[in-house]
């Protein structure tokens, strides 16, 4: 794929690369909202349906995670197919950890045939994090190579080996992740550039809590002109408690949580602070949880409003993991409801 090729040149006869709702919303110039749905550690389709009901209407597309944190869950494709039946538009996630290029391409064909139109290409968390640390990992390809492979299937009608597809090509709107605060920080805009060059049509970033640091990252992204070649969705997520905030600040690679936000979360729990566990009644604990959650949602809304002001940010990706209920108040609170209908 030459760098000069424009989105329009690669587009299908309908003018879109994939024609997914997410692509239509972004290309119409709306500020996009994506959310996340984690499949269950079971074969229970009902879990997907219940979560889908919480998200329907409040986002333009929903990421369906792929064995997130290397814990076995229902497949992204299977869960995405159910989400699609439920009226959501899925973004199938695909990691390089569990599949080689044969499996990835065959899954892409199957996923497209099932009606999926967005794919997020990821490296994948190392299996040592999950519940099968004894597993052999694959990493036949890396995320950038995966992006290129999906783009070549769509735009050049070829498999990774160069053989032509025999029939309809899978036309995905191709996504990639960006970790603005992971090391080496100076290389991150360039790595994003490699993903864009490989064919990433949209980017979802790691969770942003430090808007100032993210603004600096975006400055470099703009200097490279990347915001004009891809749609960048900033990652946000509601904090659940001061403990969670501190854990993310200290333990999770590539996430910066400013002390001021942790202090806000602590302040929200102030009426119950300084008391020992046994001194708190069940009602106290419940009230404290609600206070923390309200503050977490409020912080998330403010972050969205700040991120929206940054040039080159085309939307937000709301990661409310195992807390899908939070998406509705966040989207409403940020003034992003109702979601646009683009035909």
């Amino acid at each position: 794929m030459s760098d000069q090729t424009t989105l329009e040149q690669k587009a299908h006869s309908n003018g879109y690369l994939a024609g997914s709702n997410l692509e239509r919303v972004l290309r119409a110039g709306h500020f996009a909202v994506t959310a996340e749905l984690g499949p269950p550690q079971s074969a229970d389709a009902q879990v997907i349906r219940q979560k889908a009901a919480l998200l329907r209407g409040y986002c333009d597309a929903v990421n369906i995670t792929d064995n997130q944190t290397a814990i076995v869950r229902m497949s992204s494709i299977g869960a995405a197919a159910i989400a699609l039946q439920e009226g959501l538009e899925p973004v199938m996630q695909m990691t390089c950890r569990d599949r080689n290029r044969l499996a990835m391409q065959s899954d892409l064909l199957g996923a497209y045939a099932l009606g999926l139109r967005n794919v997020l290409c990821l490296t994948g968390d190392h299996q040592s994090f999950g519940n099968h640390p004894q597993a052999k990992n694959v990493f036949d390809m890396d995320s950038i190579q995966l992006i290129h492979m999906v783009a070549a299937m769509r735009d050049e009608h070829v498999f990774e080996c160069g053989d032509p597809l025999k029939g309809a090509e899978p036309r995905f709107f191709i996504g990639a992740a960006a970790a603005p605060f992971a090391g080496p920080v100076e290389f991150r805009p360039y790595r994003l550039g490699k993903k864009v060059k490989a064919g990433a049509n949209f980017i979802q970033t790691q969770l942003v809590y430090d808007v100032e640091a993210f603004s600096k990252f975006m400055e470099k992204v703009r200097a490279l002109g990347l915001h004009e070649q891809t749609f960048i969705l900033a990652g946000v997520g509601p904090l659940k408690s001061p403990t969670m905030a501190r854990y993310m600040q200290q333990q999770v690679p590539g996430i910066l949580v400013p002390d001021a936000l942790i202090e806000r979360m602590e302040a929200a729990g102030a009426p119950w602070a300084g008391k020992k566990k046994e001194e708190l009644t069940k009602e106290d604990k419940k009230a404290r949880t609600v206070a923390w959650q309200q503050e977490g949602i409020q912080i998330c809304i403010e972050l969205i409003q700040q991120l929206r002001q940054i040039k080159g940010v085309s939307g937000v990706h709301i990661m409310a993991i195992e807390w899908e209920e939070a998406v509705k108040p966040i989207v409403e609170g940020a003034g992003l409801y109702p979601r646009p209908q683009v035909n």
């Binding site: 190392h126 040592s128 994090f129 890396d142 090391g183 080496p184 290389f187 790691q206």
Partner: peptide, 20 residues
């Protein structure tokens, strides 16, 4: 590299060490 990547560091690189 724990993931044998060929195009640079994944998002798990922090303070010079690997996510594992």
């Amino acid at each position: 590299c724990s993931k044998s990547l060929l195009n640079g560091p994944c998002g798990g690189s922090e303070d010079g060490h690997c996510e594992i």
